[in-house]
Design a binder for these strands. Structure first.
Lengths: 122, 122
DNA sequence: CCAGTAGTTCAGAATTTACGAATTATTGAA
DNA sequence: TTCAATAATTCGTAAATTCTGAACTACTGG
């Protein structure tokens, strides 16, 4: 099978439409410390966005399969968008859409999280 | 045992101090639809605040023990304060304290939730 | 002291989450 | 085209969490 043929078989990952996204879903996805940190970094926009780039967030490396599940939860709750880019997957936050639907929500969460980080570092 | 003696045995319920409260804890507590609804009502301040008053939120009545667990989660995450008042327990939200620690967070969550409710009712 | 009401605790079942091993999807190079 | 390498997903099952009925505790007023 040629490369050109294969391109049509790439199954896209599931993403909820904006009106399928719920507050509970967002809160649940971000209630896990690892997912909250991943999302905060993606929303900040200053990091490499593939999955394995987040392997060493804490003291112990997060297993690949666990990380994949975390990204799935973030994606299916509507917080991020994931697109294939060659071998890796490119993840971006859906902040702009989300802020239209739930004004101030994401901002408040991210802000609270960074405030908390700052005060625990001292 | 006399009533006067018994009063000293009343063990107060555990409440985290304001600086033990975490964003993840808040998000987790409110990621459950039942807890989110209970908290929204308490924060709104327009409802009777004992535990059993929330028994019939959905279509099926929530079992007493489940409801008790939900209140425990809300309490231990720092979202509500529970005090004995005779046989019942009086629950109030800790919104004011919380807003000092995480400005805008609770407001944004409650607002998003009520917006969601409105749009689903149509 | 008793009956009644509100809430908690306990224990097992049901559900969800974590993660190693195997698998899939893709690339660039031989 | 075939292969080795890399990124990520899926699968199976072990571990942790949640739900809930039954038993229990904490209180009240009579």
């Amino acid at each position: 099978m040629s490369r050109a043929d294969r391109i049509f078989l790439m199954k896209p990952l599931f993403h909820p439409s904006i009106d399928e996204i719920t507050v509970e879903g967002i809160l649940f996805a971000l209630s896990d410390p690892v997912r909250l940190e991943i999302f905060a970094k993606l929303a900040g926009g200053d990091t490499v966005s593939n999955c394995l780039a987040f392997q060493n967030l804490g003291d112990r490396p997060i297993p690949k399969s666990t990380l994949s599940q975390h990204f799935k939860v973030l994606r299916e709750s509507g917080l991020i968008r994931s697109e294939r880019r060659g071998v890796e997957i490119h993840n971006t936050s859906r902040c702009k859409e989300l802020d239209k639907k739930f004004p101030g929500l994401i901002t408040a969460i991210i802000h609270s999280f960074s405030k908390q980080r700052k005060s625990s570092k001292k």
